[in-house]
Amino acid sequence: MTARTAPPPARRRRAGGLGPSPWWGYAMIAPAFIGLAALYLWPFLKTFAKSFMDTPAFGPGTWTGLDNYTDLLGDGDFWQAFGNSGIYTAILLLGVPIATVLAALIQQISRGRAVYRVLYFLPVVTLPVAISMVWRFIYNGDFGLLNWVLSLFGVQGQYWVADDAYAIYAIGVVGIWMSLGVNLIILGAGLQSIPPELYEASSMDGAGRVRQFFKITLPLLSPSVFLVTVLTVISALQMFDLVFVMLRSVDNTALDGSKTIVYLFYEKAFVQFDQGYGAAIAVVLLLVIMLATVLQFRLQRRWVFYD
């Protein structure tokens, strides 16, 4: 594939003007459009409408304008959930430099690359329910593997997922562990597109490996790093499943202080029968995600290099 020898942008742009009647375009996106409109756009609009309603558990709602949103602003649980989602996102962002360094290391070795890739990717191909079960077990304060390992080093263990002082951080670690494989692939693809000649030239100039990483790899990899960062923020802000499976047990007192935004949405809409309020939470989350994404695209000019 010639991905690495893409034609100059000018040609590409001109090429867009070539071609058949616009109807071909419409015909080819029709299946996608119909599906996305019916299964995503329409359901979304319905939920959006509900955010302006007072919705009884069953039956039609009544319009209440912005009431749900004003209630939201005064709801301490909402702000706490927001904070937790923020913490989780920040932790997952720490995974980006880790993935970048690992991708660069893998790129550098001559043998065994495939083995490492497979091992790092295993969490991605494992059922999320299964992952949560395993980690909950590992984090157990009384007989978990983690505390036992820590005790070997003389470190006092904690009730990682049973204490709201730690739970969201413990879950963040699982999040990094789960997402590393995908990030490595995206970054690995970016690394492959860096022309080897650049390294050869800088080697002749006597640059060491660390220096090359910062002077060549990082700048040229920055579009991939940017993509990974954007994807990470979007998915981290939507995190729900780990809290759901790891903290939601009969007696878990850590859940209260560890809810994320989407968890709160789920709870309001599906446990407490308040879909209108839940919808308002989801809409606010959507706005935050969009804002964060737009902001990142704005900021990318400062640090992302496109050749």
Binding site: L39, Y40, W42, P43, F44, K46, T47, I234, Q238, F240, V262, F265, Y266, A269, Q275, A279, A282, L285, L286, I289, M290, T293
Partner: peptide
């Protein structure tokens, strides 16, 4: 960017 739970009922 829309949380998938939003689509569920529809």
């Amino acid at each position: 960017m829309v949380p998938s739970q939003l689509f569920l009922i529809g």
